[in-house]
Amino acid sequence: MNATMIQTSDLTRHFTVKKDVVEAVRGLDLHVAEGELVALLGPNGAGKSTTLRMLTTLIPPTSGTATVAGYDVVDRQRDVRRVIGYIGQGNGAAHSQRGRDELVSQGRAYGMSVRDAKARADELVASLDLAAVAERPVSSLSGGQRRRLDIAMGLIHAPRLLFLDEPSTGLDPQNRANLQEHILKLRAEHGTTIVLTTHYLDEADAMAERVIVIDHGTVIADDTPARLKAEHSGDLITLGFGSAADAGRAVTRLGALADAAVSADGAVVEVRVAGGPRLVPGVLRDLDAAGIAVESTAVNRPTLDDVFLNLTGRSLREGVVTTSTEEVAA
């Protein structure tokens, strides 16, 4: 087990808005070890940003404690700030500034010499593909270009611990992939601890080896994406038959599958089970041998949205279809 990087105990934050108390974060207990890459996942208003804002010293907790790199976030603010990098949900570069100027100022803020700050700015401008816009006023940059500049600013001092609040919002698919690559590289080369929030389920899935699902200010699940999915949701195999009678007979036969939840609706049978794609050929052979004709098959891999749905009874993103479907010819 690596050294502790983040430790919170009963971390709580309330906001008072016109006499109403909003419990943004309620009693969060979090432990992140050095070198981990953790994604905080949760719907709008779950308390993700508020949690990051407490961990980055921007707002004090209402109650509870948090230490970052061994420093208390209330008593040792400057020590915390020296260690961390933070890419917030907004834009870090001021509109009146030029990108490269902001990068150099940012480096100076962390105590780098002018020469080092300039060299580091050049490096990041090149690696985040900002060369064409670095000399322009930030106000003239596109949303995605500004986001890349934000990321460059957060990385200027090569922090040991990096917080990213929805880093990929506003990026096109290519730049999202690019950012993910950047983050993974940072981690591989420097062992940087990374805590990010995201709405993109596939992103959390692809990058983080640990996903913390937050809802209403508390942790409702905390595990690897694979285990979360295995535990809270299996693959969904959907089988179509010629008649409800066939479907009924199929349900009986499928009862033999281990750890599967089988349900029928008219001529359609749904099987919720882990490892779906591997099971399908056997299921089809078995039903065929029993003389039950399968007319259509589909396997839906579970997504983190399924996990969330399973945990809370609500979908993470209303109106957004996040399932990936793999059609299998019957």
Binding site: T57, L58, Y86, G88, N91, A94, H95, A109, Y110, G111
Partner: peptide
């Protein structure tokens, strides 16, 4: 008003997170 604008965009927040006194 310049600072106000930076507060709204997030630039001020980014400065607050640095170790600047």
């Amino acid at each position: 008003s310049n600072l106000l604008f930076e507060i709204q965009t997030g630039a001020h927040e980014r400065m607050l997170v640095t170790p600047l006194r």
